[in-house]
Design a protein around this nucleic acid. Structure first.
Length: 489
RNA sequence: GGUUUCGUGGCCGAGUGGUUAGGCAGCGGUCUGCAAAACCGUCUACAGCGGUUCGAAUCCGCUCGAAACCUCCA
C-alpha cells in the first residue's frame, strides 16, 4: 500500500516516511491511563492525538490493530510515604476492593472518552490480567543475565545492558550522567544502581494487590506491562508506539531495554509522543490547583473556567494545535475555538443549500490535495483546519453568489468536509440543548410568537422588551434570514 | 545541575532561508426598525544581541525567559 505519510519518530528525531512492517496491517500501542482518579485534561490529549492517528491510518486503508492498556497494578506513587501502590492506597482510603476502584474509574474514563468521540481501541488489556506474561518476561530477562534478584524483588541491570546496548537511545539520556548524579545515594539501596528499575516488586505486608512468583508475593514493575502486552497482541516488533512526552523517560526507555533483552529486537519502529498541556501558561499540577477534570470542563464547574466547554470544543481545541507542541488551555483560547468550531460546522450545513453553476471559480481539487498534504506532514491538524476554514469561506461566498461551483465541485467539497471533519478529525455536530427540553421549547415558541406579532405591528418597544428580558433570563435571540433562533447562554 | 523541547501579531496557534497560515478579538462593510447573530473584507508578528548569507522570523553562537522528564525502592 502506497502512502505519503510522514511521522516524527522520537527515535531518530526526524520525520520519516511511514512504512508498515507488514502491510496492510498496522500495529499501534499507546500507553493508557492509570485508573485511580477521574480523567482530566492530561488524559484527553494522548487519547485524541492517537485517535487521530488511528482514524487517519484507517482512512488510508490500513487494517489497524490499536492496543491501549489500562494500568491497574504496580504503578507506585513517588510522592507517597513509602512507595504505596496508587490503586491500593485509594482502595484503603475508600474502604473498597482495589478492583472496585479500577472498575469505577475505568468506566468513568470510558465515559469521558466517549463524550470526546474517541474511538475505542481494538484491544484494551489490563495489566492485572497479564501477570503470567509479565512473569515470563522477567524470567527471560533473568536468563539473559540482564536482571538480578534482591530481597524478593527483581531489577533490570541498566549498567550491564548499556555495555552491549544503548540505554538512552530514545531519550538522549547518557548513563554516565545518570550515574554521576546519584552516586552518593547508593549503599542503603537494594538496587545496584539507582537507575536500575524494578521488573518485579515484593509486596509489603499491608499491600493488598499481590501475586505469587518465584521471587516473592508481589507485583510487576511499572514498565513491564506495556512490553508484555504489546508483544502479546502486536508481536515482538510492531509499527507504532505512542504516549505522552512525560513517559519518554524512564518508561519508554526502559520498555525498549526490557523488550530488546527479552525478544532480541527493538519493539517498535516508530515512537510518537504528544506534548503536554498547560493552563493559562502555568504548568498543570495538583499543587497549583489547576488540574481540571474533563467532566468539570463539560459542566463548567471549576474556578478556573468562565463557562462550560462542550466535549467537541475541547476536542477541536486540542486539534487546533499540532500534537508535538505544548498546548495552553485558557478561557480566551477555548472560547475562540468554540466560535471557530461552530462556524466550521455551520458551513457544513450551508453546503446543502448551494446552487450549482456551469463553471467553478475556485479549484476544489487543489484544496483537497492541500488537506492530505497537511495530514501527511506528521498529522498537522492545525494546518488541515486552516484549509477547512478556507473551504468554509468558499462555501459561504458561493452561498452569497460571490463564487461559483459546479455540481461536481459542490459534491467534492461536501465529500472533503465530511471526510476530514467527521471521519478524520472525529468531530461531531453538537445537539442544540433546547431540543432536550420540551417545555422550554414550547414556552419559547409562545414568547417568540408574541414578539413576531409585535414586530409585524412595528411595536418595537414590546419587541425589544421581550428580547432584553429574555437576555436577562439567559436566553439569546438571533434574528436570521431563515427566521428567529434562540439558544441558552 | 543534566536530558529533551520551546519562545511568533491583543489572545491562541501554523510555518521555517526570498511569496497571505488559520481561528478569536478589534476595525470597516452587507443585512437589520435598532441591535445582536450571521456573512464578506481588513489589521501584519516572529524574545534580545552578535554571526553566516545577495537575502533570516527561518541556519550558527551567546544571553534572557518558559515547559516536560531526570537527580527519589515507579
Amino acid at each position: 500500500m502506497e502512502n505519503n505519510l510522514f511521522v516524527y519518530n522520537t527515535l531518530s528525531r526526524q520525520k520519516e516516511l511511514f512504512v508498515p512492517i507488514n502491510p496492510p496491517h498496522v500495529g499501534m500501542y499507546v500507553c493508557g491511563p492509570t485508573v485511580y482518579g477521574d480523567a482530566h485534561l492530561g488524559h484527553a490529549r494522548p487519547a485524541i492525538t492517537f485517535d487521530l492517528v488511528f482514524r487517519y491510518l484507517r482512512h488510508l486503508g490500513y487494517k489497524v490493530r490499536y492496543v491501549r492498556n489500562i494500568t491497574d497494578v504496580g504503578h507506585l506513587e513517588n510522592d507517597a510515604d513509602e512507595g504505596e501502590d496508587k490503586i491500593a492506597k485509594k482502595a484503603r482510603l475508600e474502604q473498597l476492593e482495589p478492583m472496585e476502584v479500577v472498575q469505577y474509574f475505568t468506566d468513568r474514563y470510558h465515559s469521558a472518552m466517549d463524550k470526546l468521540n474517541v474511538l475505542k481501541p481494538s484491544i484494551e488489556p489490563r495489566a492485572s490480567g497479564h501477570i503470567i506474561e509479565q512473569i515470563a518476561m522477567v524470567k527471560k530477562i533473568l536468563n539473559a543475565g540482564m536482571g538480578y534478584e534482591s530481597q524478593g524483588s527483581v531489577y533490570f541491570d541498566v549498567e550491564k545492558y548499556n555495555q552491549t546496548n544503548k540505554y538512552g537511545i530514545l531519550s538522549g539520556r547518557i548513563i554516565e550522567d545518570l550515574l554521576s548524579n546519584t552516586r552518593e545515594l547508593e549503599g542503603q539501596n537494594e538496587k545496584r544502581n539507582s537507575f536500575d528499575f524494578a521488573l518485579w516488586k515484593k509486596a509489603q505486608p499491608e499491600h493488598i494487590m499481590r501475586w505469587p512468583s518465584d521471587w516473592s508475593d508481589g507485583f510487576p514493575g511499572w514498565h513491564l506491562e506495556c512490553s508484555a502486552m504489546s508483544a502479546k497482541y502486536l508481536g515482538e516488533q510492531f509499527d507504532i508506539h505512542g504516549g505522552g512526552m512525560d513517559l519518554l523517560f524512564p518508561h519508554h526507555e526502559s520498555e525498549i531495554a526490557q523488550s530488546t533483552v527479552a525478544n532480541h529486537r527493538t519493539p517498535a519502529k516508530y515512537w510518537l509522543h504528544n506534548n503536554m498541556i498547560t493552563i493559562n501558561g502555568q504548568k498543570m499540577g495538583k499543587s497549583l490547583g489547576n488540574f481540571i477534570q474533563l467532566d468539570e470542563f463539560f459542566a463548567g464547574q471549576h474556578a478556573a473556567l468562565q463557562k462550560a466547554y462542550s466535549p467537541m470544543t475541547v476536542r477541536f481545541f486540542i486539534l487546533q494545535a499540532q500534537y508535538r507542541s505544548p498546548l495552553d488551555f485558557s478561557n480566551e483560547a477555548l472560547q475562540a475555538s468554540e466560535k471557530g468550531f461552530q462556524r466550521l460546522m455551520k458551513s457544513v450545513e450551508t453546503i446543502e443549500k448551494l446552487v450549482s453553476a456551469s463553471t467553478s471559480t475556485v479549484d476544489i481539487t487543489a484544496l483537497q490535495a492541500k488537506c492530505y498534504e497537511a495530514m501527511n506532514d506528521d498529522l498537522n491538524s492545525p494546518i488541515l483546519i486552516a484549509h477547512l476554514f478556507d473551504a468554509a469561506r468558499i462555501i459561504n461566498s458561493t452561498f452569497d453568489k460571490k463564487e461559483n461551483l459546479t455540481a461536481d465541485d459542490i459534491g467534492l467539497l461536501r465529500n472533503i468536509m465530511h471526510t476530514f471533519i467527521f471521519d478524520i478529525l472525529g468531530l461531531l455536530p453538537e445537539n442544540d440543548p433546547q431540543s432536550g427540553n420540551k417545555v422550554i421549547s414550547n414556552l419559547m415558541q409562545i414568547i417568540l410568537d408574541l414578539r413576531r406579532e409585535a414586530r409585524t405591528n412595528k411595536d418595537w418597544a414590546t419587541s425589544d422588551r421581550l428580547r432584553d428580558a429574555l437576555a436577562q433570563a439567559g436566553v439569546i435571540i438571533k434574528d436570521t434570514k431563515e427566521g428567529v433562533a434562540w439558544e441558552l447562554e
